[in-house]
Write a protein that binds this DNA or RNA. Structure first.
Lengths: 156, 156
DNA sequence: GGTTGAGCTAAAGTTAACTTGAGGAAATAG
DNA sequence: CTATTTCCTCAAGTTAACTTTAGCTCAACC
């Protein structure tokens, strides 16, 4: 009887993923903790990633760079199929979601930019009470911690 | 000899400023600590603000909402004249500064949005190494702590 | 087959922009 | 004149998104 070949999970190590994505190893582990990736484990507990996780993490990086929070991104990623590797179409649908949110944010930013001058020139001292600067321009005001640019979480 | 009239610094209390701007009292104190406002003090140590500080703080609120950091805003405000109340023109110059930075950020955001689809459709798994997604699109990557949307500090 | 590099976990630290709380003084209202 | 309300300072807490450190196991190379 042959010694059974240990079928150890194949795939990329966390270091290899780090190299491919440019992310720090600690960041990748953090993303797992936050439910953004779900690597396999070897019998000794090491993480093994699928090649498609590179795309997944790249997507996280880009959307994050666009100003979306991890919670936003996690919600979006949860729309990907769980039982198969996402197809190109899956990814396209997902990115369309972000695209429209981003469009909205850009529009809002343009409006804000255009009103700044108007309000500065206005006679009332309080820009935030200025007729020109109304509540619709208010961007985000709840919770403590750092304020992020524009918009609440997308209503995905 | 008459009891000398105590010449107490006139002006608005911190509570009045809070009401006028919508800011929390604690935030206003914090902004002072950060060098964004410089109220007078009464002989008993209470803060007294000029009416023009309402505009100053409103400006802080708006530019912050645009995604600029306190350091950015402090740098910009330092361009205002120190020895007189800023005129409408002073404020207009300042807001022009932010306007152009904001324009640049909007443009960058649009580019990023347009490229997301392209990269998602591309054959290479790593979006961040993708030919379509080059270094110019990279937004900000230094320091720890929360990542903000778009751009380093303006080169004011 | 030992040593060096890569991984692992868990806990604590970091930054930004504030808020909250403790403990006390002063201003205002009745 | 007493009771609130407002203000003050200083220290510590909060959130997001990570990084750093400590202490240990495992894998890979010569």
């Amino acid at each position: 009887m042959k010694k059974p070949l240990r079928l150890r999970p194949t795939g990329l190590t966390i270091g290899q993923i780090a190299d491919r994505t440019g992310l720090a190893v600690s960041a990748i582990r953090y993303y797992e903790e936050q439910g953004l990736v779900f690597p396999d484990r070897t019998d000794t507990g090491q993480r093994r990633y699928a090649r498609s996780d590179i795309r997944r993490l790249s997507f996280v990086m880009i959307t994050q760079g666009m100003g979306f929070s991890i919670a936003d991104i996690r919600a979006a990623l949860s729309r990907l199929p769980e039982n198969r590797t996402p197809t190109k179409t899956d990814w396209e649908n997902l990115s369309a979601l972000f695209r429209s949110e981003l469009d909205a944010r850009i529009t809002q930013m343009q409006a804000l930019r255009d009103k700044l001058d108007g309000c500065i020139g206005c006679g009332c001292l309080s820009l935030t009470n200025c007729a020109l600067y109304n509540k619709d321009d208010r961007i985000r005001n709840r919770g403590q911690g750092p304020r992020f640019l524009l918009g609440d979480t997308p209503d995905t």
